[in-house]
């Protein structure tokens, strides 16, 4: 192989798209060719810079508003509710018989049950740590990279399960810290994402869908054949779902519809 023949193959190598004999031929050529090694380094640098340039660009807020209020896209609503707690959303769901029944059931429960902290689902117990974590009240694991945080959390969980490790960089959210806490006798892995003034906490633990609060709204995703449970508490929106025997709770102050879409986009069917 000569340098001219190596050109396109270097591009494919930079993109992790070079396999088999082409890859071994190029690797063999690179061992003895300082010039092509430099070209490889240059092209890797260029790709990184172009990627970083792209990541800086975001759709303007007014475009998002225009799309959300475009009746050709969302024909059934003149206005999309911005918050989970908005009147529009409540009107949609409170009027459903199943929701009414659930609310009546909850209201009818003995007050002692409601006051008993031990009866609180683990999902709500986890949520109570949301603000303290963001304020820095609890000790956290910080690391140089997302992989390092993930590795430390996995180790803390004794290898039984691992944090979801979602890549939320498209939303400009990067993992900045992690923590492990014992809640209701179970280990909960906590990954904190932040970026552009937004925070999101991902709680992961072993459990079942019974761990979702009884009054959560349930959405079934027919594509992924998964249930997503949505609820709000104290101005924080939460989406709960299960991947096999592992529960993932995403909590954030971002609008519920965005959080739900985010969870559905990243959830992996077991």
């Amino acid at each position: 192989m000569n340098c001219a023949e190596a050109r396109e193959l270097i591009t494919a190598l930079v993109d992790h798209e070079l396999h088999g004999s082409e890859r071994s031929q190029l690797e063999s050529h690179l061992k003895d060719c300082a010039r092509c090694q430099s070209i490889l380094a240059q092209e890797q640098l260029l790709k990184r810079e172009v990627h970083a340039e792209g990541a800086k660009l975001h759709a303007p807020a007014d475009l998002k508003e225009k799309i959300l209020s475009d009746r050709r896209i969302f024909p059934e609503q003149a206005e999309i509710p911005r918050r989970w707690t908005s009147r529009g959303w409540l009107a949609d769901y409170v009027l459903r018989p199943a929701v009414v029944a659930a609310v009546l059931l909850i209201v009818g429960l003995p007050s002692l049950y409601l006051l008993n902290q031990r009866s609180q689902p683990i999902s709500l117990a986890a949520l109570e740590t949301y603000s303290p974590f963001l304020r820095g009240d609890f000790p956290m694991i910080t690391a140089q990279s997302a992989d390092e945080i993930k590795e430390q959390l996995m180790r803390a969980a004794g290898g039984n399960f691992e944090p979801m490790g979602y890549d939320l960089s498209a939303m400009n959210l990067e993992p900045v810290a992690g923590a492990v806490r014992e809640m209701k006798g179970r280990k909960v892995l906590i990954a904190i994402y932040q970026g552009q003034g937004l925070s999101l906490i991902c709680y992961t633990f072993l459990g079942t869908e019974e761990d979702a609060p009884a009054n959560a709204a349930v959405f079934f995703d027919p594509g992924k054949k998964m249930n997503f449970y949505a609820f709000s508490q104290g101005g924080i929106n939460v989406v709960f779902h299960r991947e096999g025997g592992v529960i993932c709770i995403l909590a954030s102050q971002m609008p519920m519809q965005d959080l739900l879409a985010l969870a559905r986009a990243h959830a992996r069917p077991a």
Binding site: G54, L57, H58, A59, L63, K64, I67, L68, I73, F74, A170, M171, Q257, D258, L260, A261, L262, R264, A265
Partner: peptide
């Protein structure tokens, strides 16, 4: 539509 909105930034780019 809501799921598609997740890709808004990408489409804008």
């Amino acid at each position: 539509a809501r799921e598609a909105m997740v890709h808004l930034d990408h489409l804008y780019r």
